[in-house]
Write a protein that binds this DNA or RNA. Sequence first.
DNA 1: TATCGATACCTACACCGTAGACTCAAACTA
DNA 2: TAGTTTGAGTCTACGGTGTAGGTATCGATA
Lengths: 220, 220
Amino acid sequence: MKTEKGGAGGTRPSPGVRSTLNRPYICAVALALIDANGLGNFSMRKLGAGLGVDPMAVYRHFTDQEELFDGIAEALFDELDVGSLPWDGSWRAVAEQYCRRLRDTLLRHPHAVSVFATRPVRSPSSIDTGVRIIELLQAGGFTPTRALQIARCLREFTIGHALSLAVVRLGSQSRSRKPAPESPDYNILARAADDTEIDEHFDVGLTALLDGFELLIRPA
Amino acid sequence: MKTEKGGAGGTRPSPGVRSTLNRPYICAVALALIDANGLGNFSMRKLGAGLGVDPMAVYRHFTDQEELFDGIAEALFDELDVGSLPWDGSWRAVAEQYCRRLRDTLLRHPHAVSVFATRPVRSPSSIDTGVRIIELLQAGGFTPTRALQIARCLREFTIGHALSLAVVRLGSQSRSRKPAPESPDYNILARAADDTEIDEHFDVGLTALLDGFELLIRPA
DNA sequence: TATCGATACCTACACCGTAGACTCAAACTA
DNA sequence: TAGTTTGAGTCTACGGTGTAGGTATCGATA
């Protein structure tokens, strides 16, 4: 086991025998492992195995596990494909689509949501997106300060929602199930919950938030 | 070191020489350790040391670390003191105070926010609070389904905000600082950020959210 | 006093992140 | 072409982790 194990490189020159590892590819494999086995079952050693490489090889490309996780968060952000947002439309359309895509992307990787939620993403494309959204909000009539506040609120609501949903979905596979309707524990909360899909409230919250922001520039 | 080490019990009968461990006390010590040293430096062994007890003693009271963290989350929730919320006031007043207190409590324990954010809290007092808030929302004119959705949105926004803020505050102690104003990286985002305290937007978002919800029962 | 249950202790195991020294082939220099 | 450098990947090893399983000790009960 020396030089075969083909497929270590994403877009590297010599495609034949063995291209070198690179950050995006390592992140993609790490994310796939987390998706498949859960964050708790992820380790640098298993990542090495998944890459067909010595565990320490990863440390040539990332100083530590923390930095690897930063890379995974950036990969998740890139999966949004912000470039295809309706940048020509209203601030509201962009904000809505941005939040929806962020939510959908995160929920596609429920085991990795907490990785994304627990660090600030500072990749160029992420910063650039932030700038564009704020410019759009300013063009829509918000002050610079207000625009920044709104952008932060939207992001935090969306991440909070995705994290909460991922936690509930993954937890209900192994944790306590809900009580039967005859039980005294079947209270008003449970009854309402039975009538409500657990993820239906995102639209409600997002709309409320956007409506509320609109009141700031167009008072009723 | 056998039977002294006084102070192992919170509100236990025999206060003299050595009372037994109990869940609330263990959680309180664990939380204090996390506050002091960070989540990454916490371990069951260090908890044992902090309690003045063998590390395995904790396993008499919690089946594993996960369950201990569940207990910590419950302890954080209890710190809210939901009993003293203005339950006689409007749904809006209660919702606002609830979110504010949740936020303040979490930010008092920045290293523990992710512990709270990554599990559903199912303690009786937490469930009871959920029920009361939903009843109040229904009394305010929302349908049961809508009430549940609103409660979830408020909770998720608040947690998302607290998590994001905690991450930024803790991260900026050791991570990259912001660029100087002359730098080409000092873009519109950084400029707006300089004029905006990082935590000033919570009120903006919360107000927008509540305004938006109000539109559902009192259309403009 | 004898018994028992709960509580805390101890040992040990498998696994973790990663520091530091290594091999070895490709790339550059003379 | 011969010699050298560089850098990716390997190997070993260390101190730490969660926790399973067995043991000792103490208070309450019979």
